[in-house]
Design a protein around this nucleic acid. Structure first.
Lengths: 284, 284
DNA sequence: CTTTGGAAG
DNA sequence: CTTCGAAAG
């Protein structure tokens, strides 16, 4: 057998023989396992720059999706700089914005709601962690909703020590809230929960395990073995077209909310960022 | 007479009653005053970023114009970063590049020629002035061609003192060359020669008078009274559409070349920069 | 590769 | 307003 016909397969190949394996989000499940219809729809999206995302029609997708609450991460935008389209958006009368105190155009999250929360707080109560505009918490009658943009450990893990301090503090913060009311945490948690949650687990070990600490990853709870379901693809190397991605965006639920869970969706088709939106359907 | 019908005219109004007064470049004059046909065509263009200008099809306009020599200013591009389209352009086998030593993406000029110059030099022989890549000089059999991007005095004239040192040194440099051979100087001289050369002379006094120092402004020589002929319009306030501009780009000739002058053109229609190109036709 | 603010024009 | 590089992801 001539050498040229010998087939190589060392397990490292990036090529998919018959094209990339894409992920198709199945039809939404509109009822919980006990048969209750969903009454609350929450969408979370790391927009990677709110202003660019608005220009790329991100808000039009939101109008189609029409969630009750919209959580955004990496807005990179102070309140003064908000595009009028979202600043004045009538569908969400209750809007809350956080941004980095120091660095302009860095980090930042937002929470927009159709109904008025009982109360809203910013940060997690520790100065070191609250100056970058990474967390907004809203109390609703039956639950807390927390949206977070968890710090990236940085290229070469330059910020790993900070991330580890964050993880400890953030977990304590969430446990404090969850002791009072059921809790939904959503956002870019900047961690791939399990090996199945990223395309190349060998080269991409991420630390940090807030998950499995009293909260349930709603998507993985419903779809324990579904592979190729990612929410982030680097803009580099045409990764999104090849579906070489990571699942970094989550809805985590405190255990009491599991019976209300109808579906946890990954809207892979929505464009406008290097992340796609995710949507939670809850019956309560 | 009711007040509302009273016509205001305090001389400061920016509005043109019947729209802006545009400038139409007349047909090219192909012969000198003594009837000789032009044999040399030189185009000069401040491209305000070579890479953006190439994307905006600046090179396609150059191919149409087809000058013998092409001089570019504000290339903001190191040789390594040159787009292949211009780096490998076959029409100009002889290419010379200068860029800022310190600041990446700042200043920079280029000279591209169909015929090979006898020699080419960079700068004006003074360290203070030569580190920003502002001058290339090419010696041809019958003349020197110098292209220059003269330093802007800066917002609020923060760099006025430097500019004044430059003016002295640059004038001495040109006089040295002109003593040896006829000289053509082209480029963005960052000065409006006379009041007629900018739209709002009252608010825009520029200093610096290299002009009238042994060199002739070829355009003004041929068209002493033609107004509204500008080569630069700020991107702000829709200035180009309103033709609120300045004439900052020139072909200056040493006196011996005046008899060879056929035409000095302002190609106001060419887009791709906040400056338009200018073209010189010479019979020699 | 793409976002942002900042320097410069 | 638009260029570019830097920092960040």
């Amino acid at each position: 057998m001539p050498k040229r016909e010998k087939k190589q397969d060392n397990g490292d190949s990036e090529k998919e023989a018959d094209g990339p394996i894409l992920y198709e989000d199945p039809p939404d499940k509109l009822t919980s396992s006990s048969g209750k219809e969903y009454t609350l729809k929450i969408t979370s999206w790391n927009v990677d720059g709110l202003r660019a995302w608005v220009k790329k029609k991100g808000l039009e997708w939101v109008c189609e999706e029409d969630p009750d609450v919209l959580c955004l991460q990496e807005t990179k935008c102070s309140e003064k700089q908000l595009p009028a389209e979202i600043r004045d958006m009538a569908a969400y009368p209750h809007k809350y914005w956080a941004c980095s105190n120091d660095k302009e155009g860095y980090s930042g999250v937002a929470l927009l709601s159709k109904s008025k929360p009982l109360s809203v707080t910013y940060g997690i109560g520790e100065e070191e962690h609250d100056k970058e505009g990474r967390v907004i918490s809203a109390e609703f009658p039956s639950h807390f909703l927390v949206t977070a943009y968890v710090p990236n450990a940085g290229r070469g893990l330059v910020r790993l020590a900070y991330r580890q301090r964050w993880d400890v503090a953030f977990r304590a913060y969430l446990e404090g809230l969850a002791a009072r009311k059921p809790l939904v945490l959503c956002g870019d948690l900047n961690v791939a929960h399990r090996e199945i949650d990223l395309k190349n687990p060998k080269g991409n070990k991420k630390s940090a395990e807030l998950l499995d600490a009293g909260f349930t990853d709603s998507f993985r709870h419903l779809y324990p073995d579904t592979p190729y379901a990612y929410t982030f693809w680097t803009y580099m190397m045409n990764s999104r077209a090849k579906n070489v991605g990571w699942r970094l965006d989550y809805f985590l639920l405190s255990h009491g909310l599991l019976e209300a869970l109808c579906d946890s969706k990954i809207r892979s088709g929505a464009m406008g960022s290097d992340h796609c939106p995710i949507t939670l359907l809850l019956a309560q």
